[in-house]
């Protein structure tokens, strides 16, 4: 074999392997989604949305868990979004190149990838222990701590994409800086910032680990934020690990529900990002 033929062969093999790797990655996506649809579709009935989580061996639904998940996700988003946007604004508008900003950016990126179970432990220590019981508030705060770094990051990135000429134009008209930020920078970057919030909601919609030690679970309907509250991920965890067929079916139904929600949020966020005025 000539050296040239060998190089071509090596190239063909390497390229074939990389095609295979991509196929391998996509295969798992397809397998997971396929299983979810096959196993979960028969659990998607009106009862799933209108009945409470049943005791073992009985049929029922996930109504309380769906409510709890929506409630805690909503509160977490309401706490996390303004916090994240303001912190991101500081990084992008007030602290380009500053030491303090560098530190915040660094720590924020670490929080972004830090294990979510650690967040659960932290909130357990600061809220569950002093209050003496598990509560939906604690669950919402744990989820909010996961929302914040995501929103900080996207807000900063999106504000950085806004051309300085726009800010300078507003300043030249005599606008104070805060007004430039609120009426010019935010308006220009709003789609991108919304994308970040949607991605954050998608991230917490399926988070389980931080809820285990904070909101715990509740077999019954509860809208009391000071008491343990049912939520989809923890119910799925409990039901899937159980030996009862009814419970396992409900777990599959809940899993399908969460995955569809998360995928829609993700794809929606990407579409929104592709429509935004300034793109990365």
């Amino acid at each position: 074999m000539t050296p040239y033929a060998r190089r071509r062969l090596v190239n063909a093999v390497v390229m074939a392997l990389s095609v295979a790797a991509t196929g391998f990655g996509l295969l798992w996506l397809a397998l997971v989604l396929w299983t979810l649809v096959v196993e979960g579709i028969s659990a998607i009935t009106p009862a799933l949305f209108s009945q409470m989580t049943p005791p073992p061996g009985n049929s029922g639904g996930l109504m309380n868990a769906i409510f709890g998940s929506i409630a805690m996700t909503l509160i977490a988003t309401l706490i996390g979004t303004p916090t994240g946007i303001l912190a991101g604004t500081f990084l992008a508008e007030y602290s380009r190149g500053g030491r303090f900003g560098e530190a915040v950016r660094f720590i924020n990126d670490i929080l972004l990838s830090a294990p979510s179970i650690i967040v659960g432990l932290f909130v357990y220590e600061i809220m569950v222990v002093p209050m003496g019981h598990f509560s939906a508030w604690a669950g919402a705060v744990a989820l909010a701590i996961i929302v914040i770094p995501v929103v900080v990051r996207t807000t900063e990135d999106m504000l950085n994409l806004v051309p300085n000429a726009l800010r300078e134009a507003a300043s030249a008209l005599g606008a104070p800086k805060w007004k430039v930020i609120v009426t010019v920078s935010y308006r220009a970057a709003i789609q991108g910032m919304l994308t970040g919030v949607m991605l954050a909601v998608a991230r917490i919609a399926g988070e389980t680990a931080p809820l285990l030690f904070t909101a715990l679970n509740n077999q019954f309907w509860s809208s009391n934020l000071n008491a343990p509250m049912a939520n989809l991920p923890v119910v799925i965890f409990q039901f899937a690990m159980s030996p009862y067929a009814d419970w396992q079916l409900l777990a599959w139904g809940g899993a399908l529900l969460i995955t569809v929600t998360v995928l829609f949020l993700n794809i929606g966020a990407r579409l929104l990002a592709s429509w935004s005025t300034f793109k990365p």
Binding site: W28, L31, E39, A202, G206, P233, A240, A255, V262
Partner: peptide, 24 residues
Amino acid sequence: PLATMIELLAAIPSIIYGIWGLFV
């Protein structure tokens, strides 16, 4: 589209991988 599909692997919540891993 391909990059998006690979990134969707990261969007699927961990508990979904768990239940899929256990039963399938």
